[in-house]
C-alpha cells in the first residue's frame, strides 16, 4: 500500500533522511519508532505530498507522491504532529469544515468515526482551542478520517498525552485497522511498538531495523540481565565500571545490564557486587525489549 524507495532529503545543512526504504502492506498497522529529530515528520510530509524528496521515489496506493499528488490527497488522511485544527472553531465546526473540503458530509461517513466521536459529542460546541490534550487528539483523528481515506498517516499522535489516554488511542487504532485501513503511525514511545504489526526503528534519518516487534529484538545479540539492589544510583555507577559490562541502563524498577560476552559467569558478577558492598541484589536473565534493541542499534551506529 505504501512503497518507499531510497528516499533522501536534506535541509540546508542537516541530512533529514538518508536512503530510506520500506513497504507497508494493505491493512497493516505500521509503526515508525524514533526520537525527535530522527526524520519521522520529514518522511510523513513527503508521503502526504507536502514536501518533495531530493532523491528516491514513493507511492501510496499506487499513486506517486510527486506526480499524482492530487489523487493521493483524496485517499489519505493525515494527522500532523502539531495540533493543526482551527482553535477558534468548535468541535462540530472543525469536523464540518474538513468534511466539506473533501466534498463529503459528516453523515456520509459517520460510521467510521462514530466510535471516537461519541466521546467528543458532549463537547461539540466547545472551541477546539479549549479542549484537553486527549480530546484534541481524538478530534484531530476524526478530522483525518471524515473523508474515509484508505491510508492513515498519524505523526506522533500520542506525544505529551498521559498513559491512560495513550492506551485508549491505541485501542481506537486497533479498531480502525480491523475495518481495513492501512495505518502508518510514528511515536517516540518505545512501549507502543508492541502494538504494531511491524515497526521500523529510525534514528538520524536512517532506518536501523525493520521487523515485527518480536522479530526486531533478535537484532539484540548480547546477553542481558535485569538487576536491582538497595541503592540504585550506586549500583548503576559501579556496574558501569565493571570489566564485564558492555552497557548498563535504568529500566523501570530494574537495571538492564548488557554483558560483553556469554562467558561471563553470574557468580563472578555477584562476587564483584559483594566486594562493593551492595545489598539485596537480585538478578535474572531477560529477553530484550524493543527499547533495549533500539539502544543497542544506536550504540552500534
Amino acid at each position: 500500500m505504501i512503497a518507499i524507495e531510497v528516499i533522501s532529503k536534506t535541509y540546508a545543512s542537516a541530512r533529514a533522511l538518508q536512503q530510506v526504504s520500506f513497504e507497508v502492506q494493505k491493512g497493516e498497522l505500521f509503526g515508525l519508532i524514533g526520537p525527535d529529530g530522527a526524520g519521522k515528520t520529514t518522511l510523513f510530509k513527503i508521503l502526504v505530498t507536502l514536501l518533495l524528496p531530493d532523491a528516491g521515489k514513493a507511492t501510496v496506493a499506487g499513486f506517486d507522491v510527486v506526480k499524482d499528488y492530487k489523487m493521493l490527497r483524496t485517499i489519505t488522511g493525515y494527522m500532523p504532529g502539531r495540533f493543526s485544527l482551527y482553535q477558534d472553531l468548535t468541535v462540530g465546526e472543525n469536523l464540518q469544515f474538513f468534511a466539506s473540503v473533501f466534498g463529503t458530509s459528516i453523515e456520509a461517513n459517520y460510521a467510521l468515526i462514530a466510535d471516537i466521536y461519541t466521546q467528543l459529542e458532549p463537547f461539540k460546541n466547545r472551541r477546539a482551542g479549549n479542549l484537553s490534550g486527549g480530546m484534541k487528539q481524538k478530534l484531530a483523528l476524526c478530522c483525518a478520517l471524515i473523508h474515509k481515506p484508505e491510508v492513515l498517516f498519524l505523526d506522533e499522535p500520542t506525544t505529551g498525552v498521559d498513559a491512560v489516554s495513550r492506551k485508549e488511542f491505541w485501542e481506537m487504532l486497533g479498531r480502525l485497522k480491523n475495518r481495513g485501513l492501512t495505518i502508518l503511525v510514528s511515536t517516540p514511545y518505545m512501549d507502543e511498538a508492541v502494538l504494531c504489526d511491524r515497526i521500523a526503528l529510525i534514528q538520524n534519518g536512517t532506518i536501523l531495523a525493520i521487523d515485527t516487534p518480536e522479530g526486531i529484538t533478535t537484532h539484540f545479540t548480547k546477553p542481558l540481565l535485569a538487576i536491582r539492589g538497595a541503592d540504585t544510583y550506586r549500583l548503576i555507577k559501579d556496574l558501569r565500571t565493571a570489566p564485564f559490562t558492555h552497557t548498563c541502563y535504568a529500566f523501570g524498577e530494574y537495571l538492564h545490564l548488557t554483558l560483553k560476552s556469554e562467558s561471563v559467569d553470574r557468580t563472578y558478577i555477584e562476587a564483584f557486587l559483594q566486594q562493593k558492598q551492595h545489598r539485596q541484589i537480585e538478578m535474572h536473565p531477560i529477553s530484550p525489549t524493543v527499547e533495549d534493541t533500539f539502544m543497542s542499534l544506536m550504540d552500534r551506529q
Binding site: G34, P35, D36, A38, T159, G160, P188, M190, Q203, T232, Y233, I236, Y249, A250, E291, F294, M295, M298, D299
Partner: peptide, 18 residues
C-alpha cells in the same frame, strides 16, 4: 524528557540521580 531517544533520556536521569 519528552521526545528524546532512550539513551539521552537515561543520561538525563543520571543527572537527576546525581
Amino acid at each position: 524528557t519528552g521526545g528524546v531517544d532512550p539513551i539521552t533520556r537515561r543520561q538525563f536521569w543520571d543527572m537527576l540521580y546525581e
